[in-house]
């Protein structure tokens, strides 16, 4: 997707969104509620028409080449609603047949792993179980690309672990996955690369290592002497001193100088942590939230 804009009346849902997912990768798609993740996926599915910008999917135009493209992908919506009178098994088979086809061995395997009863009617499933129906239908379909919109929102932790195994298998089979999610641990564990979007715009994209490069390492140390002029060093942020203990955040390019300063003072113990995705996330969302306030 390149510079995609989509507005609904006065609301700007996508404001020049850029998103690139390479073949065979698992791509994390992160953003706060209302950032435009689902809108972006719907544009990719040809359900919504972009106002401007270009979108390409599997080498085709998502708006024009609908039927051909859709046979090669499977989609799990964020809010799965099923037909009240159809059983879960029927929905799985129907959706699989309307895509490229269904692998019946994999269907049976997934039903067992997700502990899903396929004979229940659509209206009697809980939210998590509806989500499982859509997941089994997608994962058992013979497709190249999986578009998953917050697929684990209703799953319990055990099922989430099953889901992670499944995605790892999909990657091993060479399928491409676009995984929109809120659950950072999940994206951190599963995704090769990720894009963070806010207010309909991509604010960051790359591998986790690349994104970490952009952000600060947190350092906690127990020092032998007074910290001295630590606060005046370039690249030091959020310094907190409690007696001999210091906590600080360091910009990646200044890390060497700061550590040199600390060792001159004398270090009894030191814990250094790379930024978690959570911190990346908070750092990118915080300005928006501040602006709202």
């Amino acid at each position: 997707m390149d510079g995609v804009v989509k507005t609904f009346g006065a609301t700007v849902a996508l404001d020049g969104l850029d998103l690139e997912v390479a073949t065979g990768e698992v791509h994390g798609f992160l953003g706060p509620n209302g950032a435009g993740k689902s809108t972006a996926i719907r544009v990719l599915l040809g359900l919504l028409r972009a106002d401007s910008g270009t979108a390409r999917l599997l080498g085709g135009d998502p708006w024009r080449d609908v039927a051909d493209l859709h046979r090669r992908l499977a989609y799990v919506p964020g809010d799965v609603t099923l037909w009240p009178t159809l059983s879960g098994g029927e929905v799985i088979d129907l959706l699989g047949r309307l895509r490229g086809g269904l692998d019946s061995g994999r269907r049976a395997d997934l039903l067992a792993r997700f502990q899903l009863d396929p004979t229940k009617k659509g209206r009697t499933y809980s939210k998590g179980n509806r989500q499982k129906v859509a997941l089994v239908a997608a994962l058992a379909s013979d497709v190249e690309l999986l578009l998953l919109d917050e697929p684990t929102a209703g799953l319990d932790p055990l099922m989430e672990a099953v889901f992670r195994d499944c995605i790892a298998e999909e990657r091993a089979r060479g399928r491409t996955v676009l995984l929109s999610s809120h659950i950072l641990a999940e994206v951190e564990a599963l995704c090769d690369r990720m894009s963070i979007i806010r207010d309909g715009r991509t604010v960051e994209t790359g591998t986790l290592a690349e994104l970490r490069h952009l952000t600060r390492t947190s350092v906690s140390a127990d020092l032998a002497g007074p910290p001295g002029r630590l606060a005046d060093l370039a690249g030091v942020h959020d310094l907190a001193v409690q007696g001999s203990r210091v906590h600080l955040q360091v910009d990646p390019d200044q890390l060497n100088d700061v550590l040199a300063h600390l060792t001159r003072v004398g270090v009894r113990s030191l814990v250094s942590q790379p930024p978690t995705l959570e911190q990346l996330f908070l750092r990118h969302y915080a300005p928006a939230q501040a602006a709202v306030r």
Binding site: V66, A67, D79, L82, L147
Partner: peptide, 14 residues
Amino acid sequence: AQRAEPLLATGVGR
């Protein structure tokens, strides 16, 4: 009810 969406995301044309 968003039941059209998953169908239209398959090979079924509008």
